[in-house]
Amino acid sequence: MIPAAFEYARPTTVDEALQAIADGGDDVKVLAGGQSLIPVMRLRLAAPETVVDLARVAELRGVRDDGDAIVIGAMTTHHDVMIDPLVQQYAPLIAEATETVADRQVRARGTFGGALVHADPAGDLPAVALALDAEFVIAGLQGRRTVPAAEFFVDYLTTAVEEGELLVEIRIPKLAGEWGMRYEKFNRVAQAWSIVAVAAVVRRENGRIAEARIGLTNMGSTPLRATAVEAALAGAPASPETIAAAARSAAEGTSPSSDLNAQADYREHLAQVLTRRAVTAAAGL
């Protein structure tokens, strides 16, 4: 199908974009890579009055080094994130997870920021951002604010980005010490979304796990941290037995849905298995 008619604005700066959103009427949609928005508009599940295309806002693209963090522009495509040297050096988990997103055509256009604002529970990047304690820089006509990942994902397809605002960039703190990372995704066919996936970030110190951060994909309406597993692993010896025991509480506090792909109890089982695998790999075992 063809999208319903809309007004089209193509600003070249963040300020112009915010103004275009303010002037766009009641139902304005921001267009990033269009890989979620255009399908939804074709099915007429969305029929915005105005579409504000961010493609020409150059300041939103690219990755830069900002001392204690790397900063990823919201409009950086999945493809460009995957091959970026700063991402590979400081946050290889993002590159690893992005490689599992969709297919080469979708990755050529879809953006890091678009995937995070879209906040699909089965999307791969939200749990990764959560595990890396990312910070989200949001711009509005009144100025900019920074929201931690723990407060960014509010509900199903809902984030802290309010109407009239834009996600500008995502700050990924550089990790000090000896860290390992792994994204374990379970799906059945090519280019499919995660049935469940687990992002693990582990710091090792003298044969022990000093700190573990675990993000869960598709175990609720938002990405979640497996806090019980994190607590069980903190300071524990880095052994397969300890990790296997801790991973058994991966589904604690989650509320996965039942759908065509999997029942909730099957997702709970997957969360445990994938957590064990991801933490084991991230711990270098």
Partner: peptide, 8 residues
């Protein structure tokens, strides 16, 4: 390569 049905 892109999917031309998902580009305006």
């Amino acid at each position: 390569a892109v999917k031309s049905c998902t580009v305006l």
